[in-house]
């Protein structure tokens, strides 16, 4: 006899509960007991969970019903969500595939000098530029050039899209306290959700063969810092300077373009730096859902216990991370120095 029987009869609910029904789905505990071949032995007073209550009263759900319910609800909503989201997100697949093609099709003797030149243009720092050149050549020597370029193309696309959406969202948040209050919890959620959790609903919505699946996962994860720091940067702009802009009759657009964005630029750049780093972190995990690049080799290392493959790819990721971080940080300090001298 189950522990909570007395409770239900005391409450006069025995009738409502009905008789025990053996065809009901197994409880999680029963499942575990079956698998382990051992009787589940709880404490003296079992915790009043769905499963434990169900043993006394058939009308009470089992926890499996909850997970099933969520799944069914999601599947029911899927057709609607899909018809709406699919066309909207389709361009993302094209862009990702296009960028991938471009990065792979460009011959290395054009691509490598181009990347080095971009590093120089962004950082204006000789050590950083040399480091970039050496790192890329190292990757190339161990035949990781192609996968590194795949990873880079994904990061390039996702960061660009994050900035294109994140900066305007951040600007809008800085203008409206109401919007800020409602968006911040969402950003907190996106940032605290373990990266794997993003993938679960996305896998249901889109097919694993589509590149937008990992694109969306990466962008959702990486867009947070650029939004936050754009909002913060604009809010931190010196009140006196804003007042001067008002006093000389600037309109909102002039204020934004001539004062707020330039003065917020160091913060926005810091946000972009973090966005790049988070894209990189996510692109590795996204190899689980068929994102190409270095992450695939790491995954191979884990799946097939190919230690060497995994470690070389891991080192490749570290190199890529350091390159991206150094170049974007150098660009940031350059902006900080030449633009805002206090």
């Amino acid at each position: 006899m189950a522990f909570y029987d007395k409770l239900f009869s005391a409450l006069g609910l025995s009738e409502w509960c009905g008789t025990s029904d053996d065809k009901a789905p197994l409880s999680l505990a029963d499942l575990a007991a079956q698998a382990g071949g051992e009787e589940a032995s709880g404490p003296f007073v079992p915790i009043p969970s769905f499963d434990n209550l169900h043993e006394s009263c058939n009308r009470i759900w089992q926890s499996r019903d909850v997970t099933n319910g969520i799944e069914e609800g999601f599947l029911a909503a899927k057709p609607v969500l899909k018809t709406v989201l699919d066309p909207i997100t389709q361009p993302l697949s094209w862009i990702l595939d296009g960028a991938l093609w471009l990065f792979e099709a460009t011959p290395w003797f054009i691509m490598v000098p181009l990347l080095v030149a971009i590093s120089w243009y962004a950082s204006r720092s000789r050590p950083v530029t040399i480091f970039v050149a050496v790192s890329i050549m190292l990757l190339a020597v161990v035949d990781h050039y192609d996968v590194a370029m795949q990873t880079l193309s994904i990061i390039f696309v996702c960061t660009t899209i994050s900035v294109l959406f994140g900066v305007p969202i951040g600007i809008a948040m800085s203008k409206s306290d109401r919007l800020q209050k409602s968006v911040v919890p969402l950003l907190d959620l996106l940032q605290t959700l373990p990266t794997f959790v993003y993938l679960i609903p996305l896998i249901f919505l889109f097919s694993v063969t589509e590149s937008k699946l990992y694109g969306i996962a990466i962008i959702l994860y990486a867009i947070v810092p650029v939004i936050r720091l754009t909002d913060l940067g604009i809010r931190l702009v010196d009140r006196d300077v804003i007042e001067a802009a008002d006093a000389f009759g600037m309109n909102d657009r002039q204020k934004l373009v001539r004062v707020q964005l330039p003065l917020a630029l160091p913060n926005i750049m810091a946000g972009i730096n973090q966005t790049i780093m988070m894209s990189l972190a996510m692109v590795v995990i996204a190899s689980l859902v068929s994102a190409p690049g270095l992450g695939v080799n790491v995954l191979r290392g884990i799946r097939n216990l190919e230690l060497g493959v995994g470690i070389v790819a891991g080192i490749g990721i570290v190199l890529l991370a350091v390159i991206l971080d150094r170049v974007s940080k150098a660009a940031l300090t350059r902006v900080d120095k030449t633009q805002v001298k206090h």
């Binding site: 300077v241 001067a244 009759g249 805002v340 206090h342």
Partner: peptide, 19 residues
């Protein structure tokens, strides 16, 4: 318009555009 054409302002903390 009035702020642009009629009144200009000088501030205690200068309030120049640093960039």
């Amino acid at each position: 318009h009035a702020r642009q054409e009629k009144m200009s302002m000088v501030f205690q903390k200068f309030a120049l555009l640093p960039h």
